[in-house]
Design a protein around this nucleic acid. Structure first.
Length: 565
RNA sequence: UGGGGCGUAGCCAAGUGGUAAGGCAGCGGAUUUUGAUUCCGCCAUUCGGAGGUUCGAAUCCUCCCGCCCCAGCCA
């Protein structure tokens, strides 16, 4: 097997790659050219990641190239902010369009010329009907439409009107250019679709040069043809547009005839992948912004600490097919953990501190202990952590009246402090309200490092931080934006989980964390993977939880509560 | 009810006439100074349903059922 074949096989099998492979094998195409064509009207989300990985991935695997093309045909919805964000996010995901950056707006002049040709050929006409009239004469899903009274205008009149539309003589909505196809077609896209509309709006790139703009259908296929795209990949809802896509390419003197193929868009449980909804989430203040770590946007995932490689791996695992589906968010979590487990160094941090005093540890004494940075990677080295008489453990690691199978601290129980000593809880100190505020314990000096010379075992190892040397920090925990796995896009606001963000303001972390670099992933042992949030400052560390560790105990304890034990 | 698609395990998904890959989740068990990781094992006699063709059908044919998309001068 050749290297290229190996790579292609590695890349996985899906019906689109099968088509590409077949086209290359048959000589139908010598090279493959794809494109990722976002409209700059919002931020990219993980659904786009599927498309990006598909388009750029295929180009890479088959030694072709992929264009980044902005489908910027509707200036009323587009913005430079989105253009910048899209480039940043595609790059971050790990893809490079090289010099192949294009815009549908680059082709406005050519598109206009083709529209005139269509008019000259008698294949398009100017319709003066109002939007309401057009809707009324378009027919319904089951009834055919009827021809516009303006359908038989002369070529001369159509040309004159179209030029005057361009010249700005008419207000928005006064007239449109329509293709003359078939008002009785079962496919509504073929019932004389609108090709150009009047929009007196400033375009982020062409400014005020135009007041008429091509529709998606008139721009997309021709842009593909201009760029000599070989495989134009889009989502299922465009299947009905393919006949129109082909009609236009067949009726215009385009330089190439690309083919459109459709695949199912990504859906994920516990979130909504719709630009409309995400935009409303931001504008309605339900989240802090497009990069809120609860958002499924690439910017949000990045801020949460999700590595781009994990997203690419996730996309690879979910495959590409035509069946509508909803992928379990647990699959994304798995891909994130899998990657982070390999690269993240381990540190100790106590999210909800509970003070512990070792009564038989000399007052004022302290010692340095060695801790490994990564259990499976000796090259990651070690660091020193300071142990003393007083430190903090996780509140959840202590229970005064533990249920069966609770291995952690409780009165009389002995546990290991990671890298330090075995300790036994002797006394529980409570405040006036009856809340546990401190634990008085004793340690076994012979267990230094965490092993007992007499071979006795302990069932739990706890993480901890020194009371004197640890640093205060804020830790932000993120849960799914929606509690229910299948939130309703029509009623999303009411379904946003108010507890999706949980802020722990009094966490304590080991001093080494002060050196963590922005964007660097770290594992807080026994808790999960974290990263520094941009809100973090030298005096005030702020961490985001990217994803928690698998937690078998949490499942067991929840089951116990449910069972009433 | 017109047109276009899609139904393989709880979820994603291979499979294209030769006797149901893989992953996630789940469940057991081993190892473990993270209840993590790792490792091992289990998890569809059946492919939306019913007929038919065939030595042989998830794959071919017929009918039926279910789900998704389309009636923007959005993309």
């Amino acid at each position: 097997m050749s290297v290229a074949e190996n790579i292609a096989r590695e890349a996985g099998q899906d019906f689109i790659r099968d088509i590409v492979r077949a086209d290359l094998a048959s000589g139908q195409h010598k090279t493959v050219v794809t494109r990722f064509p976002p409209e700059p009207n919002g931020y990219l989300h993980i659904g786009h990641a599927k498309s990006i990985c598909l388009n750029f991935g295929i180009a890479e695997e088959f030694d072709g190239h992929c264009n980044l093309r902005y489908d910027d045909t509707n200036p009323t919805k587009e913005d430079q902010e989105y253009i910048d964000a899209i480039e940043r996010d595609v790059r971050w995901l790990g893809f490079d369009w090289g010099s192949h950056l294009y815009h549908a707006s680059d082709y406005f002049e050519q598109l206009y010329a083709w529209a005139e040709e269509l008019i000259r050929a008698g294949e398009a006409y100017i319709d003066d009907q109002s939007q309401e009239q057009m809707r009324a004469t378009r027919g319904t899903l089951t009834e055919p439409g009827t021809n516009s009274p303006f359908r038989e205008r002369s070529v001369e009149e159509n040309l004159d009107l179209f030029r005057r539309m361009r010249a700005g003589e008419f207000p928005n909505g006064a007239r449109v250019l329509r293709a003359k196809i078939d008002m009785t077609s079962g496919n509504i896209n073929l019932r004389d679709p609108v090709l150009y509309r009047i929009l007196h709006a400033e375009h982020p790139r062409t400014g005020k040069a135009w007041c008429i703009y091509p529709s998606y259908d008139f721009a997309h296929g021709q842009s593909d043809a201009i760029e000599r795209i070989t495989h134009s990949l889009c989502t299922l809802e465009f299947e009905d547009h393919r006949p129109l896509y082909n009609w236009l390419l067949d009726n215009l003197p385009v330089p190439s005839h690309p083919h459109q193929y459709e695949f199912a868009r990504l859906n994920l449980t516990h979130t909504i992948l719709s630009k409309r909804v995400l935009t409303e989430l931001v504008r309605g203040g339900h989240v802090s912004g497009w990069d809120d770590p609860r958002m499924p946007t690439l910017a949000g995932l990045r801020r949460r600490g999700v590595p781009p490689a994990a997203i690419r791996e996730f996309v690879k695992r979910i495959g590409v097919a035509k069946a509508n589906s909803v992928v379990d968010a647990a699959m994304l979590d798995f891909a994130i953990r899998e990657h982070l487990n390999k690269i993240a160094q381990r540190r100790m941090a106590v999210l909800r501190p509970l003070k512990v005093v070792i009564e038989n540890y000399p007052e004022g004494k302290s010692e340095d202990l060695e801790a490994v940075n990564h259990p499976d990677d000796a090259a990651a080295g070690t660091r020193h952590i300071r142990f003393g008489r007083e430190f903090y453990v996780e509140r959840d690691d202590f229970m005064e009246n533990p249920p069966k199978k609770f291995f952690r601290l409780s009165p009389g129980a002995e546990v290991r402090l990671r890298y330090a000593y075995f300790i036994t809880c002797r006394e529980v100190v409570k405040n006036g309200a009856g809340e546990v505020v401190e634990l008085r314990c004793v340690y076994d000096p012979a267990t230094k490092g965490g092993n007992a010379p007499d071979g006795r075992k302990v069932k739990a190892t706890l993480h901890w931080v020194s009371a004197r040397d640890s640093l205060p920090a804020e830790v932000r925990l993120y849960n799914p934006l929606f509690t229910r796995p299948d939130p309703d896009p029509g009623n999303f606001a009411a379904q946003v989980d108010p507890n999706a963000l949980e802020v722990l303001a009094d966490a304590r972390v080991e001093p080494a964390l002060a050196e963590l670099k922005p964007g660097e992933a770290v594992q807080f042992e026994r808790q999960g993977y974290f990263c520094l949030d941009p809100d973090s400052a030298a005096k005030r560390l702020v961490f985001n939880r990217t994803v928690g560790l698998r937690d078998t105990w949490a499942k067991v304890s929840v089951a116990k509560v449910a069972a009433g034990s």
